[in-house]
């Protein structure tokens, strides 16, 4: 069931996820479309998340936006006290401005591995950090090892923060400990995106790939064909996986395997390295005291890609 509507206020709205925003001209959504979208969200009971560009919106837009309860995703440059989620591209980060915030850090793998200190510092100040690795599909055996060590090293910092009474949320390490079931992106299933052209998309990535990828528009309504394929039950590999924190990015799936319900080897391996690092983290925290007593241990497993397990059957 659809629960969320993401509204890209402009073609130049910031990316909060795996997809890239092509550098191009600004195109603000039409004010009438914005009104129609808000009305539709009210009718369909959808929670709206607005995604902002890095410039100030005209006053009348802000007034329309404020007619509905919503959350705001804004780029770091445009941070105002009301941003619920802040997106960061790059490493010149003023940590103070992010204190207590939810931050999305978009980075290439090599950059991430080279900025361990910066990530640790961020974790100490933010309420939640989501790291999005933008070149996940190029994961190799070599950086796979390095990523594993990196996760364990940052995990040590997370343990220390917990000992100090902080409880940072970090998608790559703490989500798996907290979850009790799959919690993935939801694009096409629980979540739909409205682009500035007034048409709907499975996620912003599909819009930026090709505006003809739409799944309906404000006049026709939603028209998600083969909608079942966005659900976990229809994803043969993912439905028997326990890397519950995984994004299960259907946009990456479409790019790498051509099917929205089938992940690439690299996406699975990365998610399993995170899962295994979470396992280690949970054990380490529990050695220091009682922690999440209701949650079972995370099992040790001997694969990094559930596809391989499936093929053995």
């Amino acid at each position: 069931m659809l629960q969320y509507m993401i509204i890209l206020l402009d073609d130049a709205s910031t990316s909060f996820c795996h997809y890239e925003v092509p550098s191009g001209e600004r195109r603000l959504i039409h004010l009438d479309d914005l009104r129609a979208a808000i009305r539709l969200a009210m009718i369909e009971n959808l929670t709206i998340q607005f995604v902002y560009p890095d410039y100030e919106l005209p006053q009348e837009y802000q007034e329309v936006i404020d007619t509905i309860d919503h959350s705001d995703i804004k780029p770091l440059l445009a941070v105002t006290p009301d941003a619920d989620v802040v997106t960061i591209n790059g490493w010149e980060i003023d940590n103070k401005s992010l204190s207590g915030r939810v931050a999305v850090l978009r980075t290439a793998m090599s950059e991430l591995l080279a900025h361990t200190r910066a990530v640790k510092d961020l974790l100490a100040v933010v309420q939640r950090l989501n790291v999005v690795i933008t070149d996940l599909t190029t994961l190799t055996d070599t950086n796979r090892e390095a990523y594993m060590h990196w996760l364990n090293e940052v995990g040590q910092t997370v343990v220390e923060l917990y000992i100090n009474g902080q409880s940072p949320q970090f998608n790559l390490l703490t989500d798996r400990m907290m979850l009790a079931a799959m919690n993935n992106c939801g694009a096409g299933d629980t979540c739909i995106t409205l682009a500035p052209n007034g048409r709907f998309y499975v996620c912003p990535g599909f819009y930026y790939d090709d505006p003809e990828n739409d799944v309906g528009d404000l006049r026709r309504g939603f028209d998600i064909k083969n909608r079942q394929l966005y659900k976990l039950n229809y994803a043969p590999i993912c439905r028997q996986c326990d890397a519950w924190q995984c994004r299960r990015c259907v946009w990456l799936n479409r790019h790498t395997t051509l099917e929205v319900n089938t992940p690439s080897h690299e996406q699975c391996v990365a998610a399993h390295l995170e899962r295994n690092a979470s396992r280690q983290l949970l054990t380490s925290i529990r050695q220091k005291g009682t922690f999440l007593p209701d949650k079972p241990e995370i099992n040790e497993i001997d694969y990094l890609d559930p596809f391989e397990k499936l093929q053995e059957r």
Partner: peptide, 15 residues
């Protein structure tokens, strides 16, 4: 490209 084979190799009747 083995990623492109994954949908074929995991496809089942019910899905």
């Amino acid at each position: 490209d083995r990623n492109k084979l994954r949908p074929f190799l995991t496809l089942d009747r019910l899905t």
